[in-house]
Nucleic acid binder design. Structure first.
Length: 605
RNA sequence: GCCCUUGUAGCUCAAUGGAUAGAGCGCCAGCCUUCUAAGCUGUGGGUUGUAGGUUCGACUCCUACCAAGGGUACCA
C-alpha cells in the first residue's frame, strides 16, 4: 500500500525510514509471491530481542510451497538480498528473523525524528478520505459525569490520531439536547424552580431538579405523564417550553465548553439532537416509502425481525419522535454534508443494539454507506457496588475528579520540586493527564470500576510516568544547553543544542556518532522509536488509542532503563552528542504520542 | 426467554492465530557525593472460567455450559 511517492523517497540517499515493517515487506514479498498487504500482516515482533527485530513465520507458506517451514525459512534467509538497513536475515526453526542494522537505523532514524519534530509519526495514509467522529455527546441539563469522560477522551484521541494519519476529520458533539428529560426538567422547574439559583450554578441546579423530579415521581405517578406532555409541547413549539429549553441549553453548553477547554477537546460541530427536529417528518416518510414502517399499537415501528433484530420504534403513539429517528436523520444529513468514508460513533456498549438497528435501517433504506458506519463502543464505568445513575444521584462529577488529581499533583510537585516556577501549570498537565490516560490505557471494550485510589495513583503505567520521563529528558537537554552556552536557558532550550549537533554532525545521509550507541538499552530504544508510526496506524485501524498509550509506557520504561545505565552529560564528547540526539528522539516521540492522546507534557515537574 | 460484551498472577490489566503467556500495583530485599527516586535493580507469584472442536500451531477462532455486566416497544 506504500504509495509511489514514498517509495521513491525511500530510495533517496536521504532515506526516510518511515516504516520499517513496510520496508521489510517490500523486500520479502517478491521472494515469496505473497501479496504485500498480507505479508505485512504476518510480520511480527519476536518474543525476545535476541531472536531479532522482526520475524516472518514460514508456516504460512508451507502449504503452497509444499515444503517444511524450516526449509522455507532457510531458503528465504539465503535469498534475502543485502540492504543497508538490514544487518542480516537468519532462519531460526520455522521463523525467518530480521536483524536491523542498528548503526544504520540510528544514523537515519534519529535525524529524521529531529527533522520532523512535531510532525514525526504522522503520515498521509488517509489522504483524500473523510472520517466523521461522533463523540462526547453529553446530555444538556445533566452534569458532566465521569461516564461521559470515556466517550470524550476516546473520541478526542481518535480525532487526533486520524488527523495525524492524513484524514480529513470532522468532530461532532451530538449533544443530548432533546428528549423526554426536558419534559421532566420543565415540569420540575415550573413546580419548584428558582431563577436565581439556576443562574448561580446552572448545571448543578438542573441536576438537583432532575433528581428531585425522580424522587417526587416515586410518590406521584402523574409526573411522568406530565413530563411527556411537556416534551410534546416542546416538540410542537410551545413558547413557554421553548423558552425554558433555550435557557437550559445555553447555560449548560457554556459550562460544557469550559470543561472542554480544560481538557483541550475540540469539536467542529455542536449540532445536537434538537437540530434534526424539523427533519424528522421527512425521515419518517422516507422509511415509510421504503416499506420499513408499520403502525402498531398506535406507534410507528420498523420491523427488523427478518434481520435478527427486535422491532424498533420510530415514532411514539403521541406523535413524538425517538432518538433513533433523530440519529437516522442526523446520519443522512451528515452523509449529504460530508460524504464521509467512515463514520465513528464513540458511544457506550449499552447502546449496541441501538446502533445495530440504526445501521440496519440505513442499509434497508438503500444507503450503501451504511457499511461505513462503525459503533466504537466502550465499557461502562461503575462503582464496586453497582452502576452509576444520574437520576439516583449516584454519579462522580468529572470536574471533581480533575480537581482532586490536580491537587494531588500539586502536593507532589511542592514536595519534590519546590523551586519549580509555575507549579500550577505543571500540576494541571499531570493531573489531567493521569485521568485521561487512565481511561485510554486499557482496551475500551472493558468495563471500568471507579476507584479513587487508582485514579490518584501516579506511578507505574500512568501518564505521570510518561510525563516524568519526558521531563527528565528536558532536564538533560536544558543542562546540556547551559553547558554549551555557559548559562541557564529558558524552557525548550535544549532544542538549541540539538540544532548545533545537527549542523555539525549531519551531512545528508546520517550523523557520525551513530555507531557509538552500542549499549543494549540504547539499541532497544532506537528500535522502539522506529515503531512509533506502526502503533499509530494500528490504533487508527482498530480505533483503539490504548495501543498507542501502551507503546508510550513501553518507550518511557526503556528510556528509564537507559537513564540509569547510560549517563549522557558526563559521557565522552562524541558519545554525549550521540546520546543527546537519541534522548531528543525519545522526547519527541513521547511528546507527540501524548499529544495524540490529548495529554500535555510539562518540561519540568 | 432471546441478543451483545467480558472472564488471564492476590488486585488492576497486557499479549498481530505463532517461539518460554508479560507489565503495573501490593509484599519483601537493594540503589540518591552522578543528568528529577513520580525512577531503577532483584525475589516470589499461572490448569488463560469449564468441556469439547477447528488448525502444523489457540489466551486469541467455533460450539455448549458456568459466572459477571449490559440490552431487549413508546428513555438516551
Amino acid at each position: 500500500m506504500l504509495n509511489k511517492k514514498l517509495q521513491e523517497a525511500s530510495k533517496d540517499s536521504d532515506a526516510r525510514l518511515l516504516n520499517i515493517k513496510k520496508e521489510i515487506t517490500l523486500l520479502l514479498a517478491p521472494l515469496t509471491g505473497m501479496d504485500p498487504g498480507v505479508m505485512e500482516k504476518h510480520l511480527e515482533i519476536p518474543p525476545s530481542p535476541q531472536l531479532g527485530d522482526y520475524a516472518f513465520p514460514c508456516y504460512v507458506l508451507a502449504r503452497s510451497w509444499k515444503k517444511a517451514p524450516t526449509a522455507i525459512a532457510a531458503e528465504l534467509a539465503a535469498a534475502v538480498e543485502p540492504v543497508p538497513f538490514l544487518e542480516r536475515a537468519a532462519a531460526a526453526g520455522a521463523y525467518l528473523n530480521f536483524f536491523l542494522c542498528r548503526p544504520y537505523l540510528a544514523a537515519n532514524l534519529l535525524p529524521e525524528i529531529v527533522r520532523d519534530g512535531r510532525q514525526f509519526g504522522s503520515s498521509d495514509e488517509g489522504r483524500g478520505r473523510t472520517v466523521v467522529i461522533d463523540y462526547s455527546a453529553p446530555n444538556i441539563a445533566k452534569p458532566f459525569g465521569i461516564g461521559h469522560l470515556r466517550s470524550t477522551v476516546i473520541g478526542n484521541a481518535l480525532y487526533r490520531l486520524y488527523g495525524a494519519c492524513g484524514y480529513r476529520v470532522v468532530g461532532i458533539n451530538h449533544l443530548g439536547d432533546w428528549g423526554t428529560q426536558f419534559g421532566k426538567l420543565i415540569v420540575a422547574y415550573r413546580r419548584f424552580g428558582d431563577a436565581a439559583l439556576l443562574e448561580e450554578d446552572p448545571v448543578q441546579y438542573l441536576y438537583d431538579l432532575y433528581v428531585a423530579f425522580h424522587s417526587e415521581a416515586e410518590k406521584d405517578s402523574q409526573l411522568e405523564e406530565e413530563a411527556r406532555t411537556w416534551f410534546r409541547k416542546l416538540e410542537t413549539g410551545d413558547p413557554e417550553a421553548v423558552e425554558l429549553w433555550a435557557r437550559f441549553h445555553s447555560l449548560s453548553l457554556k459550562e460544557f465548553k469550559r470543561l472542554y477547554d480544560m481538557l483541550g477537546v475540540h469539536f467542529d460541530s455542536y449540532r445536537g439532537e434538537s437540530y434534526y427536529n424539523n427533519l424528522l417528518d421527512k425521515t419518517i416518510e422516507l422509511a415509510r416509502s421504503k416499506g420499513l414502517a408499520r403502525e402498531s399499537k398506535g406507534a410507528l415501528v420498523a420491523d427488523l425481525e427478518r434481520h435478527g433484530l427486535p422491532p424498533c420504534l420510530l415514532r411514539k403513539k403521541d406523535g413524538g419522535a425517538l432518538y433513533i429517528t433523530r440519529d437516522l436523520a442526523a446520519a443522512i444529513h451528515r452523509y449529504e454534508q460530508y460524504r464521509f468514508d467512515r463514520q465513528l460513533y464513540v458511544v457506550g456498549s449499552e447502546q449496541t443494539l441501538h446502533f445495530q438497528q440504526l445501521f440496519k435501517i440505513i442499509e434497508l433504506m438503500g444507503f450503501p454507506w451504511a457499511q461505513r458506519c462503525v459503533h466504537v463502543s466502550f465499557g461502562l464505568i461503575h462503582f464496586k457496588d453497582g452502576r452509576m445513575s444520574t437520576r439516583e444521584g449516584r454519579v462522580i462529577f468529572l470536574e471533581e475528579v480533575l480537581n482532586r488529581a490536580v491537587e494531588l499533583a500539586l502536593d507532589i510537585i511542592r514536595e519534590k520540586n519546590p523551586t519549580l516556577q509555575d507549579k500550577e501549570k505543571a500540576a494541571r498537565m499531570v493531573g489531567h493527564g493521569a485521568v485521561i490516560f487512565g481511561d485510554l490505557v486499557n482496551d475500551r471494550v472493558k468495563d471500568i470500576e471507579f476507584d479513587w485510589d487508582k485514579v490518584l495513583d501516579f506511578s507505574g503505567e500512568t501518564a505521570p510516568y510518561v510525563q516524568y520521563s519526558h521531563a527528565r529528558i528536558c532536564s538533560i537537554l536544558r543542562r546540556a544547553a547551559a553547558g554549551e552556552s555557559g548559562d541557564a536557558l529558558e524552557e525548550d532550550s535544549g532544542v538549541k543544542v540539538i540544532e548545533d549537533i545537527i549542523k555539525k554532525d549531519f551531512k545528508g545521509a546520517g550523523f557520525t556518532g551513530a555507531e557509538l550507541l552500542t549499549a543494549p538499552e540504547e539499541q532497544q530504544l532506537i528500535i522502539t522509536l522506529s515503531r512509533f508510526q506502526e502503533h499509530i496506524s494500528r490504533s487508527v485501524e482498530d480505533c483503539r488509542p490504548s495501543y498507542l498509550a501502551r507503546y508510550l509506557v513501553e518507550t518511557a520504561r526503556e528510556f528509564n532503563k537507559f537513564y540509569h545505565s547510560c549517563p549522557v552529560l558526563s559521557a565522552p564528547e562524541e558519545l554525549k552528542r550521540a546520546r543527546l540526539l537519541l534522548v531528543e528522539g525519545v522526547r519527541i516521540v513521547l511528546w507527540n504520542g501524548l499529544e495524540l492522546l490529548g495529554i500535555e507534557a510539562p518540561s519540568e515537574m
